[in-house]
Amino acid sequence: MATIAVDDRSSGASGPSPAAPPGPRRRRPGSRLKLRNTLIGWSFILPNFLGFGLLTLIPVVTLFYLSLTEWNVFGGAEFIGLDNYTRMIGDTSYHTALFNTIYYSAVHIPATLVASLGLALLLNRKLRGVAFFRTVAFFPYITSIVAIAVVWNMLFSPEYGPINQFLTFLGVDDPPGWTTSADSSMPAVIIVGVWREMGYYMLLLLAGLQTVPGELYEAARVDGAGAWGRFWNVTLPCLRPTMFFVTVILTINSLKVFDLILVMTDGGPGQSTLVLSQFIYSKGFEENQFGYASAVAVTLFFICIAVTIFQFFWNRRKDA
């Protein structure tokens, strides 16, 4: 009910419908206006697009070509068609990395989303010292990653660590070995990942929360909605553009996770935390197979895109 109020407000107040050509210029409503709009639209995008196209788009397109070649960085790339892609089908390490990446993302994305949204809601209030708490929440993101690895590994320490001591206290007979055991290294890394990034996404959500019109809450309250109802019917719908942004970025960043795992476990023990980004790096820079590394990067790209497009349409359906 409250959601409808938003739509009412934004379109109802505007007087003439948006489709009507504005003001005096009414010569040839169709193509001329379209062209004008296109030109103006491009003029907005161009300054950024020039840099983006040159510095990012061209290398990325090159990457797609390189994925079809055998290339050792120095010499010319030799075109080998889809060989790199067929090689992936039989490469068990690639399968492991792919599985681990999906495992990491599948848990990390929802957990981070819930944690950061909770933080954002909590710290969007007029609390005393809210500036301090917001800064603290952001701290994990700016703390040296080595310090994070050391302290968390200490907390996870199978014998002396406070986490396992607590678990033993709770009556867990055989607490996990966390980062020192292949069975539990991934959950350990995910926990640290959520902890580290929740402040980052909190910041983005905090900006989004500022767009929720205050009077909607009052209207909802008058309607007798409880806290949960207000969250579900006011906050979430108004937050949707931001949520879309956050989920897309969070998804991509989770699928691309690299440095945290490198420092925490370096992919180990065994291959238990090997992820795709690390696989790409080691194939490229350690084994000098940049063609194959590029092909793996392309598959990672398509996974990201598939998920993003799904989110895009999901978001659009909700919008409609």
Binding site: S181, A182, P269, G270
Partner: peptide
């Protein structure tokens, strides 16, 4: 990888 697998006694 084998090294960390063995030494962690996984």
């Amino acid at each position: 990888d084998t090294h960390s697998e063995i030494m962690s006694e996984s």
